[in-house]
């Protein structure tokens, strides 16, 4: 009897042990042509998937400027980074399938047939195998693709937050938020997968913009832009179009702009503002107004076709 009890106990343990090694969906770790679509991840990780689907990563391949500049993907040199098989590859390879997903779940979380992430396996059995890797919590992980920005980050030499802390803010939630496995209520500090550029107002708070007026006739002075807290260049980025633009307006006493000047900051022209750098831009308007009232400085994140611009910060200084 005892033997039976023991064997039942042993069997239970064996079942438990067996259950621990059991992989319910091994196909989720399929690589190459066998790589599953990201929709499969959505089945359990609904929220994270939604965050990604609205993020620039999901549009890395399909966005119009990219499509245009590569002449409808005929320029193949650009494609591997915009739909990489794995970001861990030193030289990025174009994914075999589903290019339209851009930088998809597998690009980051599937390495050589093994799903990886920053969090340990926490269920007693495998829905899919997962390997906990600390790299995901470090800036160098983002630097695998955003190498130039990461280099700037490294050189800035400040005590600073990781990329993830700003661009993937912390969210406390469960890993799985859909049936059938939603019963697992354990909450973790997860990171949002929207990979968004920081809220513009927040960027503005990290960049000091000041207008120092010198004279009224002609109206002139200095604009001071100080990259106080952002640990990489503004703008940053290796490829594509990134431009910060400073628009200056000379206002009359009705607040109407009467003259405009524009200054551009880009990586390529080596005019990007480095971490900690204080950029002083002297300006002078040719004296057109009898009584210039104020100078308004607007710092914007310009966009490729100059049709839409996002205001980062603005200042108005009255004479």
């Amino acid at each position: 009897m005892k033997m039976v009890r023991n064997s039942i106990g042993l069997g239970f343990i064996l079942v438990l042990v067996g259950a621990c090694n059991y992989t319910m969906h091994p196909e989720l770790a399929g690589s190459g042509v066998a790589m599953p679509p990201s929709d499969r991840c959505q089945e359990c990780h609904t929220v994270i998937f939604e965050e990604w689907r609205n993020s620039p990563h999901s549009k890395a391949y399909t966005n119009e400027p990219f499509k245009g500049i590569t002449a409808n993907y005929k320029v193949t040199a650009c494609l591997p980074c915009h739909a990489p098989e794995s970001v861990f590859d030193g030289e990025k390879k174009l994914r075999k399938t589903r290019h339209e997903e851009g930088v998809n779940c597998q690009s980051c979380h599937l390495v050589e047939g093994v799903l990886q992430g920053p969090v340990e396996q926490h269920l007693p059995f495998n829905i899919h195998p997962i390997k906990q890797v600390d790299t995901y919590r470090k800036s160098e992980f983002c630097g695998k693709c955003h190498s130039r920005t990461f280099a700037e980050y490294e050189q800035s030499g400040r005590t600073k937050k990781t990329c993830q802390e700003c661009h993937m803010p912390k969210v406390r939630r469960t890993i799985i938020d859909n049936k059938p496995w939603v019963w697992s209520k354990d909450e973790y500090d997860f990171r949002r997968h929207s990979f968004n550029v920081m809220d513009l107002a927040e960027i503005g708070s990290k960049i000091e913009l000041a207008v120092v007026l010198a004279g009224q006739h002609p109206p002139g002075g200095q604009i001071i832009i100080e990259n106080r807290e952002i640990p990489h260049n503004i703008p940053t980025g290796t490829y594509g179009y990134h431009e910060i633009r400073l628009n200056l307006y000379l206002l009359d006493d009705l607040g109407e702009p009467k003259a405009q000047q524009s200054f551009s900051f880009t990586q390529e022209m080596k005019t990007a503002i480095k971490p900690g750098e204080k950029r002083v831009i002297p300006f002078v308007f040719s004296d057109q107004l009898a009584l210039p009232f104020a100078v308004k400085a607007v710092l914007i994140r310009a966009d490729m076709d100059q049709q839409e611009s996002h205001v980062i910060s603005q200042r108005l200084e009255v004479f």
């Binding site: 320029v75 040199a77 290796t238």
Partner: peptide, 17 residues
């Protein structure tokens, strides 16, 4: 002078196209 080496491939591809 301004762009990195990947751009060289881009320019070449563009030229051929």
């Amino acid at each position: 002078d301004c762009h990195d080496a990947v751009y060289q491939q881009f320019f070449e591809a563009r030229r051929v196209l």
